[in-house]
């Protein structure tokens, strides 16, 4: 007999009228009933543990990550604890809003025979979010982070260089890989300097 078969159904001792009273269980003579009643809290605990485990597995399957710092302490999110220097809120908006356009433009740039931006984009590149073609053969790359250009459009140098590091430039003209800054003109892959217009390679001074 299944030890947990209801005793009444099994022809065992009759139950008291009230619901099961754990305190009274020990007074019953039937050791099987005693076992079952004593086992109920354990069964409940196992069930709860099972549900918790299922919940944890569900969380894992939902790919909600566990976040730690590098010493192994749990963090509520990656944005708690120390963080890297911020980027401007406006630029976050631009990043999120323009990404698809940038990717589409980057695909167009893959055809660029002169500046080889397509090959450059084929592999992960620090900071590059995408590029666009300017005047058929010059690619303007819009990135973020330390050399943010954040142009509204390629060739629009307004605001460019705000986050630039200020290094390795000549004559006050910023010529990063990704764009130009105040004093410079236009943008391109290693071609930012004093071009009259983007793509005017005659006046390009490479970094």
């Amino acid at each position: 007999m299944n030890p947990c078969t209801p005793l009444a159904a099994a022809g065992g001792v009759s139950k008291p009228d009230s619901a099961i009273d754990m305190r009274g269980a020990a007074e019953y003579d039937n050791p099987m009933l005693h076992f079952c009643l004593r086992a109920i809290p354990g069964v409940v605990a196992i069930a709860i543990a099972t549900l918790l485990t299922l919940g944890a597995n569900h969380a894992r399957n939902s790919q909600l990550p566990y976040v730690f710092d590098s010493s192994g302490r749990v963090l509520p999110s990656v944005f708690h604890g120390p963080h890297a220097p911020n980027v401007a809120i406006a630029e976050v908006r631009k990043m999120t809003a323009r990404r698809e356009d940038q990717l589409a433009n980057a695909n167009a740039c893959r055809r660029d025979p002169l500046l080889n931006v397509g090959a450059w984009l084929r592999v992960p590149v620090v900071e590059a979010l995408g590029c666009a073609c300017v005047q058929d053969h010059t690619c303007c790359c819009v990135g973020h982070g330390y050399t943010v250009t954040y142009q509204t459009e390629c060739g629009d140098c307004q605001g460019v260089g705000v986050y630039n590091d200020g290094g390795d430039y000549e004559n006050g003209i910023i010529a990063s890989s990704y764009g130009c800054a105040t004093g410079g003109t236009c943008c391109g892959w290693k071609t930012c300097t004093t071009q009259a217009v983007c793509g005017d390679l005659a006046s390009v001074a490479y970094r």
Partner: peptide, 16 residues
């Protein structure tokens, strides 16, 4: 296999 994910926050160090 399980797709379970753990994240190590490294800030201010930024992995590349």
């Amino acid at each position: 296999q399980s797709q379970s994910t753990t994240i190590t926050q490294t800030s201010p160090f930024e992995p590349q």
